[in-house]
Simulated assay, not measured.
Amino acid sequence: MTARIANVSIHAEDPDALARFWSGVMGYPERHGWPADEEAELRAAGLSDEDISARAEAWDGDSHHQRFYFTRYTHERRQRNRMHIDITPFEDSRATRAELEAERDRLIALGATLEKELTEPWGPYEEYAIMMRDPEGNEFCLQ
C-alpha cells in the first residue's frame, strides 16, 4: 500500500474567499458554495449556515488534480507554517523566467502578493523561484 495526498488543508479566516482565490490560481471552476445535495445533507445533519460556511474547497472534481480544503480558523497563530505549497504553470515542462513572471502577474491580479524572488544557485543549478503570499498571508512559491 502507498499513500497519496488527499487534501492540502489550509486554515482560513474566510474559507470561501480563499477557495475562490486558489480556484483561480489552479484554473478550477469558481466555487459557489456546496453542491445543493451536499448542503441538504449537511442541513439535515443539523449544521447551521455558520457551520456550513466554515469550510470550503477548491477543486475541479478530477481525482488526478489536487484538492484544496479550507476550514475557518479564528485562533491566533502561534508560529509560522512549517511547510508551504510550490506551484508551476506547466505540467510537462519547466517554466522559463519570463513565463514565471507572467504567471506572477496573473496571481497578483487574483489577489496574491509578492514576497521576494529567490535567485541563489544550488550547486551547479540555477534556482529561480518567486515567493508569494495568498490573500490571507499563507506562503507559497511559484517555480
Rank of each mutant, 00 (worst) to 15 (best):
S63H: 10
G111P: 02
D92M: 03
E13L: 10
M132F: 04
G46F: 04
A98N: 10
L100G: 11
A17D: 12
H75M: 12
W59Y: 08
N7G: 06
E41M: 07
Q66H: 05
R72D: 05
S53W: 01
I130P: 05
E103G: 06
W59G: 07
G61V: 10
R106Q: 14
F90I: 11
A56G: 08
E139S: 14
A19I: 03
G111K: 00
L18N: 06
A45K: 04
H32S: 13
T2H: 13
Y28P: 03
N7P: 02
E50G: 06
E126F: 04
W122L: 05
D16A: 15
I85V: 15
E41R: 08
R97T: 08
R97H: 04
S23L: 02
E139Y: 05
S48K: 00
L100E: 13
P135G: 11
S9T: 13
P135D: 10
R94F: 08
R133K: 10
A54T: 01
F140Y: 05
E101N: 14
I5L: 14
S53P: 05
A109N: 08
P29S: 09
D105T: 11
D92H: 12
E38R: 06
L114R: 00
I130V: 15
E115T: 09
F21K: 00
R20P: 03
Y73M: 09
E91R: 03
A54M: 01
M132W: 01
A129H: 02
P15Q: 09
Y28W: 04
E39K: 04
P89N: 15
A54L: 01
R43S: 08
F90E: 15
